[in-house]
Design a protein around this nucleic acid. Structure first.
Lengths: 131, 131
DNA sequence: ATGACTGCAAAGACTTTGCATCTTT
DNA sequence: AAAGATGCAAAGTCTTTGCAGTCAT
């Protein structure tokens, strides 16, 4: 990642784009954003590199939301709110993520990650419903 | 659901099969199980009814695990452990699910569900790694 | 008759993969 | 040369949908 030659330009751009995003984008969303600077970038490249970063633990997957996998460039444990109306995902850093991995460990499991997801309707979708 | 005539036999069977399962099965897994009693059941019927139950809040979806949506017949809030090795999902009833929905509500969101998922390796997969 | 449930096959949506090409070492 | 990264198009999975047939009211 320190390398910035042409060979890694796109890879770096994908990671950077995700890390600077607040929207917990999907591969497709990142692809659309990256196309502005790299018109010839391929969707496959975005998928490939996201999978790579995910496997390396550099980014995290939030799982499938509305049929599409969403990513987060911030691997620090924090809760997420997912709007079932519009698919928006927002961080809930203050919520913290309680370490309840003890029970799983007692069962002989190795816990590698704890994820907390709240689901519901965001402000926008709620007001949209009023109308 | 009270109706048990031929018309609802399969629908009831799908729900019952899920509710009596410990494995948090996918549509496909349920389909295979149900085929023993209903050889002519269709995978589409399983998908359709699971979506129905899910939308009615009778069951819950655990989201996509290993590319496949998994379901839980128990809607009482409880944490889950997901093994990234074999895809096993186990309940962690004692873990509880802390109500950290206050922060989301302060943001104007309506929280409808809180989900906690631990990911890691189960006992079996750990010992399999040793070998 | 009318509405509801189902099976089947087709369609859809998202993601992964094979292969040729181009870069860097 | 060899290894790695990418674009393109094809393939692969999982899930949904259209339609005709069947059952219940």
């Amino acid at each position: 990642m320190e390398r910035s030659g042409k060979q890694f330009r796109k890879r770096n751009a994908i990671l950077s784009c995700l890390q600077h995003s607040r929207s917990h984008p999907s591969a497709e969303t990142l692809y659309e954003a990256l196309r502005q600077e790299y018109p010839d970038i391929s969707l496959a490249t975005v998928y490939r590199n996201l999978a790579l970063f995910r496997d390396q633990g550099i980014i995290q997957s939030l799982g499938t939301i509305g049929g599409v996998e969403r990513f987060d460039g911030d691997t620090y444990p924090h809760a997420h709110f997912v709007c079932s109306g519009c698919g928006a995902v927002v961080d809930l850093p203050e919520a913290g993520v309680p370490d309840c991995s003890g029970i799983a460990r007692e069962m002989g499991c190795r816990v590698e990650r704890v994820q907390m997801i709240l689901t519901g309707l965001c402000t926008d979708c709620l007001s949209r419903k009023e109308e």
